[in-house]
């Protein structure tokens, strides 16, 4: 049997031959017993392919898949979470860069927190300079303002 005809017969069998070609082949089949016999062979081979019915879906399959998907390391992250992390990172870098500039306007590489309070004061930025007095002094000053001079202190 001719190779091309065999292909055409297969496509006819699978319902893949366009209308006009299918009609032409059917006309030939009616008049050529050898061709009809070949179609019969192909049909028998195709229909003879059988497999056992597939196993049913295992119980709990969906739940296991979903649970595994959520545990999977490559699981998708919400876009808002990605955006929030990116924004946080950008802010962190921005603040860090600003701090470095503020703490060392000369541009010299001063490692923070190695910067001493004296250097900070020298930089002239009062908002960032540590208080001149200690926390304890600040506390007692606040107490004095509210209650007047206390006996305890004296």
């Amino acid at each position: 049997m001719e190779h091309t005809t065999d292909r055409q017969l297969m496509r006819l069998l699978h319902g893949e031959l366009p209308g006009a070609e299918a009609s032409e082949l059917r006309r030939r089949l009616a008049g050529e017993p050898a061709l009809a016999a070949r179609l019969g062979e192909l049909e028998a081979a195709w229909n003879g392919l059988e497999l056992p019915p597939p196993a049913p879906v295992p119980v709990g399959f969906t739940g296991r898949v979903v649970a595994r998907a959520r545990r999977t390391p490559g699981a998708v992250k919400p876009r808002w979470a990605v955006a929030a992390v990116s924004l946080g990172l950008a802010l962190g870098i921005g603040v860090g860069a600003r701090l470095t500039t503020v703490l060392d306007p000369s541009g010299a590489a001063t490692a923070w927190p190695g910067t001493t309070s004296g250097e900070i004061a020298a930089a002239g930025d009062d908002d960032l300079a540590p208080p001149a007095s200690s926390l304890a002094d600040e506390y007692w000053r606040a107490v004095d303002e509210v209650f007047g001079e206390t006996e305890v202190r004296r």
Binding site: V57, F61, T62, G63, V65, V66, V76, P78, R79
Partner: peptide, 18 residues
């Protein structure tokens, strides 16, 4: 799921698993 909401993923599995 791509946007981070996997609430309907189980349904997708159920529809296609068989």
């Amino acid at each position: 799921v791509a946007a981070g909401d996997d609430g309907g993923f189980g349904e997708l599995v159920e529809r296609n698993q068989e």
